[in-house]
């Protein structure tokens, strides 16, 4: 990784300040002009390194307090279809195919967010009906031990 690139993304890992010109503040720390930083971020976006400048909310505070990780056992041949069907649900925020194990045969993972436990269960039943995947486990979130913003500096150094 080139050092100028590294320096820029490390500076961007810090959340933006709530000030009129937040990019200018980051640019100043980097010793570059605001315009230069903005065009660099635009470049990273077009390269897909940055998906977007994101406003990140806490979902509990948004009223989505009933969350569950639902793991599904899907035939390999149907994995693609099931993944697409689940992804079409707005309540599903994450849908990943993952490695399965003999003692844990689930290969498709979905995060379901709802405003109540009952609503969450209803959505999961509908997902099962639409995909015709009957074998699944609902792993409700009982406690949050940790939730932080990933720090690229810690991960990459």
């Amino acid at each position: 990784m080139k050092s100028a690139f590294r320096k820029t993304i490390f500076a961007l890992t810090e959340p933006l300040a709530l000030v009129p010109a937040p990019y200018a503040a980051v640019a100043k720390r980097l010793g570059m002009s605001e315009q230069k930083l903005i065009s660099r971020i635009a470049e990273y976006q077009s390269e897909g390194i940055i998906r977007r400048m994101g406003i990140v909310y806490g979902h509990f505070k948004m009223g989505y307090s009933a969350n569950a990780l639902v793991v599904w056992r899907v035939d390999e041949a149907q994995l693609e279809d099931a993944g697409k069907i689940f992804s079409a649900f707005t309540a599903v925020t994450h849908c990943y195919a993952r490695q399965a194990y003999p003692e844990w045969p689930y290969n498709l993972y979905t995060m379901v967010h709802a405003k109540s436990k009952k609503q969450c269960q209803m959505i999961i039943r509908e997902m099962s009906q639409k995909s015709r995947v009957g074998e699944y486990k609902v792993l409700s979130t009982l406690k949050e031990f940790k939730k932080i913003k990933s720090d690229l500096r810690e991960i990459l150094t």
Partner: peptide, 23 residues
Amino acid sequence: KEKILRYIAPMFDMRKLSIVSSL
């Protein structure tokens, strides 16, 4: 302040940065 907003930051594609992740 009410923790409705967590932060504003770029959403990086970890894979493009050659970062490996797992659950």
